[in-house]
Design a protein around this nucleic acid. Structure first.
Lengths: 204, 204
DNA sequence: GTCTATATGACGATAGAC
DNA sequence: GTCTATCGTCATATAGAC
């Protein structure tokens, strides 16, 4: 693509940069609080623009949050695709949960919204989000059945149960509990939660 | 205590009965939706009284929900106290999580609010709730260390991590995911989630 | 103590000047 | 496209009649 009019291209760049700033702020705020608790004033103030300007970029609060979530899904897909092909399926699953826990602990939005119930309904009515979620779930689903065939994941658990459990642990509230306590480092918390997810509480 | 004026006693009974109805409705609604999403109109309409009457019983939405949560804590304490003394500590822990999952799956409020973030802040500022939570946590904490000493719970996990994990699993969102799918009975879902909690996803 | 009716404030969304 | 100022709506909480 050519840029015969640099000035227009510059304006578009500004526009894009602002839109990215809005989405980044949205991701952070949705990581900190629930969809209902996050207001459009919060987003506008944090980005440093007027609320009306926000509505020039996104037609509604729902559209803004859906776009942010679709972006997260795209990033996780890129991350999953970038995992070395030689990696064991079960280790890919661990890596996925770790990626999401690290986002969660740094107050960014994890793979799935952790503090939410009403956002869920909005997302489930959004085709781009659903498509992305299905793509990710398919990818994970393959690794689950492979890991079960290799005897690394409990083969007596239905794959769907494993998938849902991975999604749930990727935004495990235990992370927040432990972080509040303040006696473990972020890295320690991630490893502890990963262990409770894959190894369970019972002694082995 | 004597009741020289039966009529007053009757009035008090009515008052108490209405208050119980209010609390029961609150427990159900808080099991179905988040604190922010539940309105005082919802509660009043469901109980069948005017909203203003609600405020004669409870000074605020926060006070109402705190009272409901304290009642849950009292019930769980009664349940824990009623467990047979001969029961293994690890089985008492399982029973606790099962009790809460069964409440969760029947849309009553579980041991901890599952769909919430803003209610948490309210509860953490409420002394009666905190006292009850500490009492329950102490009881559970003893069982955890006993179970670890018996080699039934992974002794390399800090007891606090086990405690928080039990609380988190007691309102595990996987229950809701699986229930929506509709291919498992409530009892099956409870058992599956219990297994992922204590045995983990990895094969043993 | 219960009701109807309303005050108050927050939030999503928009109008209109620049 | 950005801003200030505002509308419409809904939820908490209360006033005041009965």
């Amino acid at each position: 693509m050519q840029t015969p009019h640099p000035k227009i291209s510059f304006k578009e760049q500004m526009h894009q940069a602002r839109e990215n700033a809005i989405l980044q702020t949205t991701c952070r705020l949705l990581g900190e609080k629930a969809f209902d608790a996050m207001t459009m004033d919060d987003v506008a103030n944090d980005v440093g623009i007027a609320k009306a300007s926000l509505y020039k970029h996104f037609a509604s609060k729902e559209e803004l949050c859906c776009t942010a979530m679709v972006q997260i899904l795209e990033r996780v897909q890129a991350y999953l695709h970038g995992l070395p092909a030689t990696m064991e399926p079960v280790d890919k699953l661990r890596a996925l949960v770790r990626w999401s826990l690290e986002r969660l602990i740094s107050d960014e939005m994890p793979l799935l919204p952790s503090r939410n119930s009403s956002l869920r309904a909005v997302l489930m009515a959004n085709k781009p989000y659903l498509d992305g979620l299905i793509a990710v779930s398919d990818q994970i689903g393959h690794w689950i059945t492979e890991a079960q065939a290799q005897g690394r994941i409990d083969a007596s658990l239905p794959p769907l149960v494993v998938l849902y459990t991975l999604y749930a642990r990727a935004c495990d509230p235990v992370v927040g509990f432990l972080k509040e306590g303040g006696q473990y480092s972020d890295a320690e918390i991630v490893e502890l939660v990963l262990r409770t997810c894959f190894d369970g509480l019972a002694a082995r």
